[in-house]
């Protein structure tokens, strides 16, 4: 399932609770991949990132300060939860994932494993 691109889309792992799919950008460069996901309304403590085998799961709960007695009249974000799963390529080193969440945007950096890094081979002049 993982030749190229390094990350392929996978269906949601658990369908027990309905969730929204966050829009995502995935950029691959020589050193690894960078993943951006829009998770508006998710504070840092409500975000869960999980790498299990070759599956990366992003899950976040929306926490809005809803005033008392408010009744919703129009909702485009209709569920208070985001979830999305990605299948990671074997050439990525899932043990060195770094993540930052800034104003509702999650940025994940997953470097490629040593053996998949591009190397320059020195040419010895005899």
């Amino acid at each position: 399932m993982s030749e190229n691109p390094a990350v392929t889309k996978a269906t949601e792992i658990s369908r027990d609770e309905a969730a929204l799919l966050p829009p995502t950008d995935v950029i691959e460069d020589a050193g690894g991949i960078t993943l951006y996901a829009d998770l508006p309304g998710v504070p840092k403590d409500k975000l869960a990132l999980q790498v299990e085998a070759d599956t990366l799961t992003i899950e976040g709960e929306v926490a809005l300060d809803l005033p008392e007695g408010m009744e919703s009249s129009h909702a485009e974000v209709s569920l208070p939860r985001y979830r999305r799963a990605f299948t990671l390529s074997r050439e990525l080193d899932s043990s060195r994932v770094s993540a930052e969440l800034n104003q509702g945007v999650l940025k994940l950096r997953i470097p490629k494993a040593e053996h998949a890094q591009p190397r320059r081979i020195e040419i010895q002049v005899a």
């Binding site: 408010m70 919703s72 974000v77």
Partner: peptide, 29 residues
Amino acid sequence: NIRGLTRGFPALNVGGSSQAVDIYAFAPG
């Protein structure tokens, strides 16, 4: 859809009570 696209940006949620009208615009980053 498998792609997480929304119709417009930012997505809006609107609610109201007898005291106020609340509008939430989901505009991350």
